[in-house]
Amino acid sequence: MSKSIVVVDYGIGNVFSVCNALKQAGCEPNLTRSASDVLSADKVILPGVGAFGRAIAALRDLGLDETLRRFVETERPFLGICIGMQLLMDQSTEFGENTGLGFIPGIVDRIPGTGTDGAPLRVPHISWGEVRPAENVSGEDWAATPVANGGAHDSFYFVHSFHCTPSDPAHRLAVVDYGGNAITAAVRRDNLMGVQFHPERSGPAGLGFLERFINL
């Protein structure tokens, strides 16, 4: 039996692109907001674009916050993309303070407005950035994650004004450079993974990442 991949449909953006990319990467995703579908899935993907507050409110209104909490306890693979990654954290400072799902301890706040050389940085950060392992990630560990293409440092498409800072450095998987600042590009905790970039919009590198996630 082929593995079932659920893409959570909570009315927050780009599900069409995510589903297209997953099809291209070799699976037939189930776009749904049904709790039973989510809970019976082999893997769950939480996409999202736009503002944190709107996204978390949409999840809660549909009762999906609790459904996702129960899915995460199954220890099956879970991937958050962009806002879907930021929602995994405890809280965000975007437009006031909003609490997140709290699956990974840490905060979401605005990207630094200056580089390490003191020069102003444009926000949102929009670029194809090369991801590299975070400080505490060994080469062997890196090569085994779906983010690394067999140990390579692929480039992915980033567009964001806010970024995640996990409280425990062990939860930081990958970083991307912006003006000398190491911005969190991917987080992980047990079966949870989140990526700040948009794999569905990152060409062959993004499709490769999705394929590796599907095959976990």
């Binding site: 953006g13 674009v49 736009g50 503002a51 949102p124 929009i126 567009v159 964001h160 004004s161």
Partner: peptide
Amino acid sequence: SDTYGSQA
């Protein structure tokens, strides 16, 4: 921007 985000 409020509805779909500044990124859009």
